[in-house]
């Protein structure tokens, strides 16, 4: 229910840049995910939106109104924290009611709102308990209920699922997305988990060292990465990046030869190809190497080939098996080969 604009946001601590030149326009009702490794500035950016941190420079606007000098408690923003941050001395009911009490919601409405929020996250039976008596997943849902209970303008979620086990994480992911769609509340979500980012986001903001690397829909980020950082951060296993020489549209590296590439970038380049865009076949092969490892997972088999000095990952058929050291040839999907400038890592188009 709010549009958020960040313009030229900088955050410095002494000589250290936490965040630099962040410009994002987050649309109303959008689900945006900040993705990046730890220390990339994604949490700091979120904390600035929350008002828990002040930008050194730049402007934060919500629905056009500048928020820089507005206290966290006066911004209509609800936040879910990595460590849940439930108040240990209060029952779950009191925890969920706390923001309503702080904002002077009439008593008569409080109870109904708490119960509605608890119902939404399926915690109705646990309202009398203290946070200490709940499991990790239940605590996470309680924290979520506390955030949604007052129907804020903006949801902020700081790695809310990272303390949960894989199975629970998936279930909660679906629940979070469902609740966000139902309540239609602008949501900013911080994570270092690319699967979470891909599955939840309307748009992903990829950050590294305090700067935005790329903003785009999950499809754009996956299909059209702006640089090697984005290319290797999205996708599991990550994109293969192979250094070599390009001349006259032909890429060459030890054990690899790819023809028919755009010829404008002759010289040292990095070729990128995703494991899922590789096929084990001798016909029209681009690459030849020795089997270094075979990892069956059930639905696919990961094949690692040693090509020259580097290892190349291939997503092979689930039935694929091979002996170590055996020679193997691979063909890349010619439409899904990326070229990056070696050094800067920027995409060559």
């Amino acid at each position: 229910m709010a549009r958020i604009e960040l313009s030229n946001i900088q955050k410095k601590w002494g000589a250290f840049w936490g965040v630099r030149d962040v410009n994002i326009d987050i649309a109303d009702e959008e689900f945006i995910v900040f993705l990046g490794p730890s220390g990339c500035g994604k949490t700091t950016t979120m904390r600035m939106i929350a008002g828990l941190e002040n930008p050194s420079e730049g402007e934060i606007r919500m629905d056009g109104e500048v928020m820089n000098d507005i206290d966290a408690r006066d911004r209509d923003v609800a936040m879910v924290f990595q460590g849940y941050a439930l108040y240990p001395n209060m029952s779950i009911y009191e925890n969920i009611r706390f923001p309503l009490r702080m904002r002077g919601v009439p008593k008569a409405e409080q109870d109904a709102a708490v119960r509605r929020a608890a119902e939404l996250v399926e915690l109705t039976d646990y309202l009398d308990r203290k946070p200490g008596a709940l499991s990790g997943g239940q605590r996470q849902r309680a924290a979520l209920a506390r955030a949604i209970v007052r129907q804020p303008q903006v949801f902020l979620m700081d790695e809310p699922l990272s303390n949960l086990d894989a199975k629970l994480r998936q279930a909660m992911r679906v629940q979070i997305k469902h609740i966000q769609r139902e309540l239609k509340i602008t949501t900013v979500y911080v994570t270092h988990d690319q699967i979470e980012a891909m599955t939840l986001a309307d748009r992903i903001v990829i950050m590294q060292s305090g700067a935005i690397q790329q903003i785009g829909t999950p499809d754009e980020i996956y299909n059209d990465p702006a640089n090697t950082f984005v290319a290797s951060f999205i996708g599991a296993p990550p994109m293969n990046l192979i250094e070599g020489r390009l001349s006259g549209g032909t890429f060459e590296a030890p054990g690899i030869r790819v023809e028919g590439l755009p010829g404008a970038h002759d010289g040292q380049v990095t070729l990128g190809v995703r494991p899922e865009d590789c096929r084990v076949t001798a016909e029209g092969a681009h690459l030849g190497g020795d089997v270094y490892g075979v990892e069956p997972t059930g639905d696919v088999t990961y094949l690692t080939l040693k090509v020259g000095e580097s290892l190349v990952e291939v997503k092979a058929d689930r039935a694929y098996r091979a002996a170590l050291g055996q020679g193997e040839s691979v063909r890349f999907d010619p439409d899904r080969i990326y070229l990056f400038e070696t050094g800067s890592g920027q995409r060559l188009r």
Partner: peptide, 10 residues
């Protein structure tokens, strides 16, 4: 975090 939560809660 507990205080941050309380702050954002108002």
């Amino acid at each position: 975090e507990l205080e941050d939560a309380a702050k954002t809660d108002g």
